[in-house]
Simulated assay, not measured.
Amino acid sequence: MTSLGAYAFGIEPAYRLRIQRYAPVLPRWPEDLALTIAVIADPHVGEPYMSVRRLEEIVAVTNNLRPDLILLLGDYAAGHHFVTRPVSMRECAGAFRALKSPLGTFAILGNHDWWDDRSAQRSRRGPVIARTELEAAGIPVLENDAVRLVKDGRPFWLLGLGDQLALLGKPIRGVDDLRGTLAKLTDDAPAILMAHEPDIFPLVPRRIALTLSGHTHGGQVRFFGYSPLVPSSYGNRYAYGHIEEHGRHLIVSGGLGTSIMPVRFGVPPEIVHLSLGTASPAAGA
């Protein structure tokens, strides 16, 4: 048991990194629109587990995947108190500045990015520090917003939802506006939605080809596809991986960092590599 504990606290969260590949067949994504996406979620920066150097290594691995598009799914701020040296959001955004892809890098915010900004909590509004620093590094942050991108002459939409757990209190309140975000779609081009917490998924309409989320860390501890504790109202339903419900598709990244406790077991830190359209290889390749 001692060795398992040492692995869960000291090795898996701090040293392991895998590329998790998906190639879903999406009913609302054109087969001839080939697109590759690298997804980075939940780094929770702070030493000793997520130093600037480790973040730079993750950036280098991501660039080596040569994706068409890079997406950041939020929770850049540390999510636990086991931090030996804080890493500022400016340092984090500076590392992300080196991300390279033809269609660029786009970001959303997570609950810890809001919770970590005391001024935003007092005023009950943003922009939070994470957004300011990411945008200063040249990375657009989508909060209830949409951008129309073009790959090989074919358009598609990228949407980013505001965080659903942004404002602390009783109850916790979100700054998400799904209806307003969807209203920004002005044509029938296929659409991808970034939403930090996957709990929004039951409300996402079939108009959206794919929803991408983080937040859960796959439960951080996972045995045979089951996580004892998942920060979601739906438990293991949206804990991790590719979920299909009623013809709608969701992919939940296991993320990179940790929250509450700096432990991972059975769900190592990961970068998601997503292939859509005719360029899609077999999933897991």
Rank of each mutant, 00 (worst) to 15 (best):
I37F: 01
L178W: 13
D75S: 05
W29E: 03
E91I: 02
S259R: 08
G277N: 07
F201N: 05
E135D: 05
R97L: 02
L33E: 07
I139P: 01
A23G: 12
I208Q: 02
I129N: 01
E270Q: 10
A195T: 10
V39D: 00
L182N: 12
S51M: 05
A136F: 09
T132E: 07
L276P: 09
R148E: 06
G241Y: 11
V52Q: 00
H249D: 13
A166V: 14
K184P: 14
T62C: 08
L167E: 09
R85G: 01
L69P: 03
G169I: 10
G153C: 06
D42F: 00
P86Y: 11
R237L: 05
R154D: 04
C92N: 01
I58V: 15
R148I: 11
D117R: 06
T62I: 08
V141Y: 01
L72F: 11
G10I: 09
R207G: 07
E56R: 01
G266E: 08
A166Q: 06
L250K: 05
R148W: 12
A136Q: 09
R248M: 13
F201L: 03
A191G: 05
G10D: 07
G74T: 03
P231V: 03
G79K: 01
A34M: 07
S253R: 06
T181G: 04
R118D: 13
I58K: 00
V39T: 07
D42Q: 02
V267N: 02
P202V: 13
V221F: 10
D152P: 09
A282H: 06
L212W: 15
I129W: 00
A77Q: 10
L149G: 04
D113Q: 13
P67V: 07
L210A: 00
N144G: 12
G138N: 10
L26G: 09
H215C: 00
Q121N: 11
Y234D: 04
P67M: 07
A191R: 06
M261V: 15
G74H: 08
A95T: 03
W157L: 03
I192R: 02
G266L: 04
D116M: 04
K151I: 15
A93T: 06
R173N: 06
A146W: 15
R237K: 12
T216R: 04
H44R: 02
K184F: 11
G110N: 00
H249T: 09
L69N: 03
P24S: 02
M1V: 12
I172V: 15
